[in-house]
Amino acid sequence: MNVTSVASRLSTGLVALVAGYASFSHIYAVARSAGEHVSVASVLPLSIDGLILVGTLAMLDDKHGNRKPRLSARLSVTFGIIATLAANIASAQPTWTARAVAAVPPVAFLLAVEVLSRRGKVIHPEPAEQVESVTIAEPVAVEPEPVAEPVAVEQVEPAKVEPVERTRKPSTKPAGTSADRVMSAHLAEPEATHPRIAQLAGVSVATVKRYRPSRSARRTVDLAGVAA
């Protein structure tokens, strides 16, 4: 805290004391003229002017806490201002000049309390624009690179590829119809099973069952072969 801040606070406190004393005298005179006891008339100014101070400090505390000022604090300040103005004006003579002079102490006391309880907002200085010095480099002569001569590329004719004839694999299936192949395989191995006959004839088992003679027919064929 510097000397200027201390001097301003002392001056403001002195103004508040003078204004408070004048307001105290006016309120005391009004209370006595109203028939109040001396003790009550002596403390009544403290309750009225002190209510303004209490409400102002409460509003300041809410502001520092980033809160909305409480309603009771506003009502306290408003009621204190009205009461002290009314009491001071009532103590003056019934002339406009006297009433204006009587209204000065409460107004001065209120402003002094505001000055003592509040502080100004901090001003953030704007950063000065810094101009950077730009050095311009001298142009440097750059020698052009030699361009390589194009190289002749001999064209190579694509090799001729002779088509390769695909040889087909001979079919492993015997010639003739399915019935003929089944009968040929049956005559070759009469006692073979259906899968064996299907393998020999190159057909499916269902085809073998369709075209292979039944057991009775096979016996007839066998007997005919024996008789021959």
Rank of each mutant, 00 (worst) to 15 (best):
A179S: 11
A108P: 03
G176L: 01
A152H: 07
A108Y: 05
A34S: 13
S39H: 06
A19E: 07
A58C: 04
A73E: 06
T193V: 05
S39R: 00
G225N: 05
P127R: 12
R168L: 12
G50A: 01
T97D: 09
Y211C: 07
N66K: 10
Y211A: 09
V131H: 14
S23F: 02
R166P: 04
K63V: 15
G55N: 00
P106H: 00
V203M: 03
A185R: 05
A137M: 07
H26K: 01
E138R: 15
F79K: 01
V40H: 07
V131C: 05
V161P: 06
A29E: 13
A112N: 05
S11P: 00
S171A: 13
A108R: 02
V182I: 12
A86M: 07
D62F: 11
S171C: 11
V6M: 04
A103C: 05
W96K: 02
A34C: 04
R215S: 12
E162N: 08
V122M: 11
L75T: 10
E162Y: 09
N88W: 02
P125V: 05
V43T: 03
S117C: 11
Y28S: 09
E189G: 04
V156Y: 01
A188H: 12
A206F: 00
A41I: 06
E189I: 05
E189S: 10
P195I: 12
Y21Q: 02
A98R: 05
G35T: 03
E36P: 03
R166N: 08
R196W: 01
I89D: 04
I89W: 02
P127F: 11
D62P: 07
V6K: 11
A179D: 14
I136W: 08
A227Q: 11
Y211T: 08
L17C: 10
S178Y: 01
E191I: 13
L110E: 09
H37V: 01
R70D: 13
R196L: 07
D49Y: 00
V164M: 07
R118A: 10
G80V: 04
V151R: 13
G55T: 03
L17Y: 02
R210W: 01
R74C: 06
V3N: 06
A19W: 05
E189H: 09
R99G: 12
H26L: 14
